[in-house]
């Protein structure tokens, strides 16, 4: 096993039940002079009933980074991102966006964020153009700006022909794209995207990657969750591996993957790979 790039603080010891929230002091990343990270997640916990979905997650997303969050199904990616964007209140912990505490001042911080959640509905009885307009107006843009940006976004995502179609009649990939357009319309400083490439066709995915890359190049910060390792390895400069509610590794992609591919490293960290003797009967040569 290669030496773990994981700093010691990323192996959280779960506090006993009912213990007080880990204070900000438990965060190791308080460098006084450096600019605050675009997104800092500190000691985040969330429990649903008896199941602990997120157990003390610390993440630091540097400004201007393209940050990948990878993990197996049910690892707590969606829960973490929901808490990081104000959609789900954490049991413990803090979320800082550019140094501002999200849960202490939600309105101010939400203005900085662009969000694409996974597994939720949209107001899909609106047309595509109406939905993007709605997102823009909700965030206080004026009418002309919204109109221009909506037209730009629809053109970029190749949805101009379907601008007047109800979103409920969109395909899964088109729905993802229109949701992404909604997340972008107010030019946020930090984009948090949960599974943005799911069900998106290769051409659109490539376009989206280009858009996100140029956004990052111009100083924006992107956090994406995905379970397509190859995509994350090619696209992101930073990555965190999360499983069973814990961060197993984080850092630049090069740090995390070391000599191996990200996929191999991921499997090594998460475990659970079976190769020997599985489904022997499935081999067509066996009969």
């Amino acid at each position: 096993m290669t030496p773990s790039p994981v700093p010691a603080h990323d192996q959280p010891v779960p506090p006993p039940e009912g213990a007080p929230a880990p204070g900000p002091g438990s965060s190791p990343s308080a460098r006084p002079a450096a600019p605050p990270p675009a997104l800092a997640i500190q000691g985040l916990w969330k429990r649903f009933g008896t199941k602990v979905a997120v157990a003390g997650v610390d993440l630091e997303v540097p400004t201007g980074s393209f940050y990948g969050l990878v993990g197996p199904n049910g690892a707590g990616k969606t829960t973490t991102l929901s808490m990081a964007t104000g959609l789900l209140r954490p049991d413990f912990g803090r979320v800082l966006v550019r140094g501002h505490d999200l849960w202490a001042d939600p309105l101010r911080v939400k203005a900085l964020l662009g969000v694409l959640p996974d597994g939720v509905r949209l107001f899909d009885r609106l047309t595509g153009a109406q939905l993007v307009t709605y997102s823009g107006l909700l965030r206080g843009l004026d009418r002309d700006t919204v109109r221009d940006r909506t037209a730009d976004l629809l053109r970029t995502f190749d949805l101009t022909a379907d601008a007047d179609t109800l979103v409920v009649d969109y395909s899964a990939g088109m729905t993802k794209k229109i949701a992404l357009a909604c997340a972008l319309v107010h030019a946020p400083r930090v984009l948090v995207l949960d599974e943005p490439f799911e069900a998106v066709d290769p051409v659109s995915a490539a376009n989206i990657r280009d858009i996100l890359s140029s956004y990052v190049a111009s100083g924006g910060t992107v956090v994406v969750s995905s379970h397509v390792m190859d995509l994350v390895q090619r696209m992101c400069d930073h990555v965190a591996v999360i499983a069973a509610g814990h961060v197993l590794a984080q850092g630049t992609v090069a740090e995390v993957r070391g000599e191996a591919t990200l996929e191999d490293r991921f499997v090594e960290l998460v475990g659970g790979r079976r190769t020997e003797g599985a489904l022997a009967w499935l081999r067509t040569s066996s009969d």
Binding site: G86, V115, V120, R121, F123, L138, R139
Partner: peptide, 13 residues
């Protein structure tokens, strides 16, 4: 609204 309610929640509304 069902889960589409997140649209309001994610915005500074």
């Amino acid at each position: 609204d069902d889960t589409a309610f997140w649209t309001h929640l994610a915005a500074p509304v």
